[in-house]
Amino acid sequence: MTRPILEIKGLTTTLANSKATVLEDVSFSLQPGEVLGVVGESGSGKSMLALSVMGLLPKVIRRTAGYIILNGEDLTGSPPEHWREKRGRDLAMIFQEPMTALNPVMRVGDQVAEVLRRRGVPAEKARQETINLFMQVEIPSPEQRVRAYPHELSGGMRQRVMIAIALAADPKVLIADEPTTALDVTVQAQILDLLRKLQRERGLSLLFITHDLGVIAEIADRVLVLYAGRVAELASVRKIFDSPQHPYTRALLASIPQTKGPRGRLVTIEGAVPSVGTMPKGCRYAPRCTFRRDICEQEPPRLGIVGPSQAAACLQPFGFEQPQEEALA
């Protein structure tokens, strides 16, 4: 196994004013060139995970335990200025809302070139490179578009600009936080295709955050299922879809509308994610779990290996329904 480009170990974040945990004991690793999908409902802590890795947690949330190791270097002990150095070079992020994530009074080209300039690229070269990046993210007539202001572009175009900004950093790890959620369905597909293409061409290590399992199926190699701030399941994308071990993962899959093609939204799991500060004592999913037993409410289950390249945090994982087939795989 090669050395992971990003390793998260036991990451725990807490609201500063109470002791309520937002993320608890989250561990996973990202291999070079790998796409790790992070999936969960809103409130599962997936955006907080992204911001933790970036070192951009809002002031009200603190990291209270765990390590974030980027390319062998532990960032958690390092001063904020060092982390800042990593952003825009080794780390880049694409946000959910292309409408508000761009500076409204700055030309979009300048917002891309800014990243290049920070990396020491001379002004004229940065301008050329920006146009080049616009071509890579398939923005038509890039020479003109670099001079546009964000409000002059459509949502899809703005998200392409955001991707160009991220690529300008030439990052080791790219985090995409629901990059297609705010867009129209047809545009979603285009942006997703673009991201997948760029990831393959450049061999990007991508942490792809979404609530949409359909998107996961299209882009991810492995999947991390988050529930209420804890890892519910971590497995290859195939295992997740073929033999989910955690009841929550299963419920998520069941909630995908059975149309042709794996596009769907998480709609119909009974109940809601418990909010921060009102977490149940045992398994956090227990109150909604149809397979719940008494012990589930006693103690939180630990993430355990349940099969080849598959781990789940459940006291009674499903096991493999088609063992022969799995064994052959």
Partner: peptide, 11 residues
């Protein structure tokens, strides 16, 4: 949000 973007750029 765009201030967060600027932060994410490492400026």
């Amino acid at each position: 949000d765009f201030i967060r973007t600027a932060d994410a750029k490492g400026l």
